[in-house]
Amino acid sequence: MTVFGFTLVLAAAFCHATWNFLVKRINGGPELVWLFSAVSVLIYIPIAGYIIITDRPHFGFWEILFVAGSIPLHLGYFLLLQTGYRKGDLSLVYPTARATGPFLSTTFAVLFLGENMTAQVALGAGAVIIGVVGLTGGIKSRAKNLTTSIGFGIGAGVLIGSYTIWDAYAVSVVLVSPILLDFVSNIGRTILLTPIALKRKERVAYYWREHRLDVVAVAVFSSLAYVLVLYALTFTPVVYVAPTREISVLLTVLMGSLLLGEGDLARRMKWALLILMGVALLATA
C-alpha cells in the first residue's frame, strides 16, 4: 500500500469515527439521516458542479446502474446503523460492524474482483474477527444490550462489505467520479427519506435547532470520509483499503467509553488493539 493511499484512508478513519460519534450523541432516526444527507448535498453542490463542468463525465448505462445501485446499499447501512445506535452501545455496534465489513469486503474482493488472498491476509482477517469476539463476548454478564448490539453490528457489516465492493468496481473499473458517486448517493437518500422527514418534521426541526453544528459536521465528515476511501480505491486494492479503514475502531471505542460513558474501557481497548493488529497485517500484506 502506498504512503499516499494509507494517508487517504487514515484521514478517512478519523472523519468516520468523528461523524459516528456525533450521530450517536444526537441519537436520531431516519429523519436525522435525511437531514444530514440533505445538508451534505447543499454543501457539496459547488464541488460536484465544478467536476461536471470541467471533467464532463460520461454517464451511460453502466455508470447509471452502478450509481443507482449504490444508493439503497448506503441507505440500508445508515438506517441499520442508526437503529443499532439507538438500541445498543456505540463502542459495541460500531466495532462489530467495522470488523465484519472488512472481512466480507476482503472475501468479496477475492471472489468477485479477482484480488489475491495470501496467508498474511487470512491471518489479519482472523485477528480482526477474534478481536470482535473478545470485544463483545467478554462482558455478557454486564451488558444487557450485547445481543442487540452484535446483531445490528453484523447487519451493518454485511452492507459495508456489499457497498465497498460495488463502489470499488464503480470507481476503479467503470470510472465513476468518487465525489459524484457519493453526491448522487446523498441525493438518493434525501429523496427516498423525504416522506419520513415530512411526517416527522417536528423532529427534523428539533435536530436542526438543538444540534445544528453537529448536523453540519456529520454532513461534512460522512461524505468526506467515504470520498477519501473511494479515491484510495481508484489505485489501491480493496484487500488493503477496507481493513485499513478499521483504525477508526480504536477511535470510536475511545469516544464511546470516555465521552458517552459506556465504560469498560480497559477490556474493550485490549481487544480493539488486537483488531488493529489484524488491520496492520492486512494493510501490509
Rank of each mutant, 00 (worst) to 15 (best):
T2K: 13
V3H: 13
G5T: 06
L8Y: 12
A12F: 06
A13G: 10
H16M: 07
L22H: 02
R25F: 10
N27R: 03
G28T: 03
E31I: 04
S37H: 15
S37W: 05
V39G: 01
S40T: 07
L42D: 09
Y50E: 07
Y50V: 09
Y50F: 12
I52D: 08
W62L: 11
V67P: 00
A68W: 10
P72D: 11
F78L: 04
L79T: 04
L79S: 06
L81F: 12
Q82M: 14
G84E: 06
G88T: 01
D89N: 14
S91C: 09
L92V: 13
T100V: 11
P102W: 07
F103Q: 02
F103M: 13
L104W: 05
T106V: 14
T107S: 14
T107V: 15
T107F: 14
F108K: 05
A109C: 07
A109H: 02
L111K: 02
L113K: 05
A122K: 06
L123E: 05
A125Q: 14
G131M: 01
G131I: 00
G138N: 03
K140E: 07
R142Y: 08
A143D: 13
N145H: 15
L146Y: 11
T147Q: 14
T148S: 12
S149E: 02
S149Q: 08
S149G: 07
I150K: 10
A156R: 03
A156K: 05
G157H: 09
V158I: 10
G161S: 14
Y163F: 15
T164L: 09
D167T: 07
A168N: 03
A168R: 05
V174W: 09
L175W: 08
P178V: 02
L180A: 13
S185H: 08
S185F: 10
N186A: 15
N186P: 01
G188E: 12
R189D: 11
R189Y: 13
L192N: 06
L192W: 11
I196K: 08
I196N: 04
K199T: 12
R200W: 04
R203L: 05
V204W: 03
W208D: 06
E210M: 03
H211V: 01
A217K: 05
F221H: 02
S223F: 10
A225R: 04
L228P: 02
L228Q: 03
V229D: 01
L230N: 07
A232Y: 06
F235L: 00
V241M: 13
A242F: 07
P243R: 12
E246G: 12
S248H: 10
L250S: 06
S257L: 02
S257Q: 03
L258Q: 08
L259G: 00
L260P: 01
G261L: 04
G263Y: 00
D264N: 11
L265N: 00
R268Q: 06
W271M: 02
W271K: 00
A272D: 04
G278K: 02
L282W: 05
A283P: 01
